[in-house]
Design a protein around this nucleic acid. Structure first.
Lengths: 124, 124
DNA sequence: CGGCATCCGATCGGATACTG
DNA sequence: CAGTATCCGATCGGATGCCG
């Protein structure tokens, strides 16, 4: 046993590149885009309709970032007018499984969280 | 079989409250705070030193939000001058396990991600 | 259709000063 | 020590207009 003595459980530490990656693929919109692309590819405007709250600008940057990190693939279909298809890449799919685990976690703990919020808000 | 016909895998959909919760407990700083508090409690300034990049303001709001959602507990110790101890609550601990899974995922896929980034950046 | 460029108000977050 | 309060520059993101 070495000198880092607090009870194990995290052998991993959060180094900058790791934190940055999670930051890029796990943000507010990326979660939903990833979730929407689960299973079947979607077009740009299909994604917009599927996630009404997202603006065109945000969707664009989100898709670009996900593509840059290899989470999704961008396919320009040879038709007129232009059609672009987005689909999850294999790596993105492994991430998607973790995202699903997170969503399950939220459903399981939502009531407790809401109770905690009520208690907190009442006190302050 | 009903009319939502794309291949299963996600039975969960991202509803607003769920998305909002993940947004509050899974953001950039919350991840690191949660990770730091894993196992042992820490004081305010201990957290600051453990996460040098975080500002005092951001740390405060992050801790408040985590507390409000029930992820951590805030203990004011009866000493002079004031001492405050932060520790993960049981719910937060279940979240922490998912965060650890995410960190493992980043370590496993970091090289592939970096390759993807190089390819992307070279093209644009 | 799938963007990019620009303007611009709102929000974030760092730096600094002060307090129980 | 553990914050709160304030100022303020930087960043985000919506709205709009234009294009291949």
């Amino acid at each position: 046993m070495n000198d880092t003595a607090h009870a194990g459980a995290d052998l991993l530490q959060v180094t900058e590149p790791h934190r940055e990656l999670l930051d890029q693929v796990l943000d507010k919109w990326s979660l939903q885009v990833l979730d929407q692309l689960c299973g079947r590819p979607l077009r740009f405007n299909e994604l917009r309709r599927a996630i009404p709250a997202i603006g065109q600008k945000s969707l664009t940057t989100t898709l670009r970032r996900l593509e840059r990190n290899g989470m999704i693939e961008r396919l320009v279909l040879p038709v007129r007018p232009v059609a672009v298809e987005y689909r999850v890449a294999p790596v993105g799919d492994t991430l998607n499984q973790l995202v699903d685990a997170l969503l399950q976690w939220t459903t399981q703990n939502m009531t407790e969280v809401e109770l905690s919020r009520k208690r907190f808000d009442a006190q302050n």
